[in-house]
Design a protein around this nucleic acid. Structure first.
Lengths: 129, 129
DNA sequence: TAAATACTGAACCTCATGGTTCAGTATGCG
DNA sequence: CGCATACTGAACCATGAGGTTCAGTATTTA
């Protein structure tokens, strides 16, 4: 479908945006588990958990292996380095920006105060029709 | 339930799961911009970009200020520390898990070899934990 | 004052997500 | 064998995300 246009980074972050999936990752980080065990632990149907595991597996964050009728899930070889790297890069940008802007911010705060006496409504402009 | 204070983390990661939003953050990290400028840069309607900015603003990652008819967007005071922290914590878990399993894996490989000389082609040896 | 600019909000569209139920299939056990 | 267990897949559902258009409102500019 459409989804293949999305990048690894998109997928990494999207995967992490779900609390259940983060929980599963942490759980598997501690100990391998079957689908049933995970479903129980997160109060969800087998089918529902299977989907989450599928997402995690497709992202390379989890590997599974079926032995007999039991599918065992473990954390996968892929780390979250790309996501971590993006955030780290952004932190640098942020630091540079804010370090350089410290004076400007002070100025803005002062200006804000004088503006407040004048006009403090910013987003609710309609009074007249 | 076992879950975290899901909302913040959920939001942080969800915000980052969109390439446009990541781009906007990077852009604003370099230089403040109006909605129109951002919309142009990312080939999107004003309304569309406004929504993204709204999401970023609600997450505290962007602040905006309307002066006259122009709304100027800047990166906000909030850093991505919570997201970074989660990933970092997971990296530790991951390392511990995989470091701890190194010997096991080595053993398994060796066992594989001796098994191959035998007759048993079953190498799914993780049964014992 | 009239026209262009910049944003805003409502309504709508399409598609993905997170979850379910239900009906299988394969496996293990007594 | 016959039943319970464990997973699988299809179908369905509700919600929300990401985007659009269209019709405004407010501000600047000529």
């Amino acid at each position: 479908m459409v989804q293949y246009a999305t990048t690894d980074l998109d997928m990494s972050f999207a995967v992490l945006a779900d609390a259940t999936r983060r929980g599963v990752l942490e759980q598997l980080g501690r100990e391998a588990a079957s689908i049933t065990q995970l479903a129980d632990r997160f109060h969800m149907t087998l089918t529902g958990m299977k989907k989450h595991v599928g997402v995690l597996e497709q992202a390379g964050l989890v590997v599974t292996e079926k032995v007999g009728r039991v599918r065992t899930c473990r954390i996968g070889a892929r780390r979250l380095d790309d996501a971590a790297a993006w955030i780290e890069r952004y932190q640098l940008l942020w630091d540079a920006r804010f370090d350089g802007l410290d004076q400007v911010i002070d100025e803005l705060k002062q200006r804000e105060q004088s503006d407040a006496t004048n006009d403090d409504r910013d987003n609710r402009g309609e009074g007249t029709r």
